[in-house]
Amino acid sequence: MTTIPTTGPGAGVQASAEPWERYTHQPHWRNREDEFEGAKLGMWLFLSTELLLFSGFFCAYFVLRHFYPDAFRGASTHFLDWRIGAINTAILLISSWNVAVAVRAAQLGQKMILAGNIFFASLCGVAFLVLKLALEYFPKIQKGEVPGAFFSYAGGHGYDPSPYDPIFLSVYWVSTATHGFHVLVGVLLLWWVGWRALKGHFGPKHYTAVENVGLYWHLVDLIWIFLFPLLYLVP
């Protein structure tokens, strides 16, 4: 580790320094602090629009569950395996912890701990998607447990589908697929951050992307915290 600047952007930094040590803020900002805080405020505003997007699905869920409680109970119990949902919840919670540790590592200038946690979190995201596709989406499409008018589940296995089951599946598919898309985007962002971390872009004086991608990943986790009990655990 080379000399760390004490005054002004890039002051006292040697040529061999890591990129984060050489980082200077964009000219339209007063200083790095303003740039960092400004980017974070923008991220929080974006995250609030994400919450508003998902609140529409949750609203639909509450209205439709209120109208068709029996169908929601039956469809949730029969079509969804809570164990897959619980494993996926644990996977996302652990990956959230990894991302929080990664932000801390960036603040402390621990490059390999930062990159390691970011890549492990992205692996968790991939595992989430693989479980979702292999154990839920593909079998469901094959069996016709699909939303609305596409529903073609023939019944059997001692289960008689209610005419309102497709409504539950509509809520399930739209909300989890939108969430799954966010997980996919999050994985790609984590790869980008991890790759930049390996190149030494992030350290105590510059970690905006780690912080903001981290916030995004936590939000994805946050939404799943609500989706899991509401969809998989209808008693």
């Binding site: 912890w97 991302v99 929080a100 981290g214 936590h218 946050l222 915290i225 609500f226 899991f228």
Partner: peptide
């Protein structure tokens, strides 16, 4: 329970 968990994530993980 979900609100409680979400609050912890917001308060600590999201700083």
């Amino acid at each position: 329970i979900a609100v409680f968990k979400a609050s912890l994530v917001c308060a600590v993980f999201m700083h």
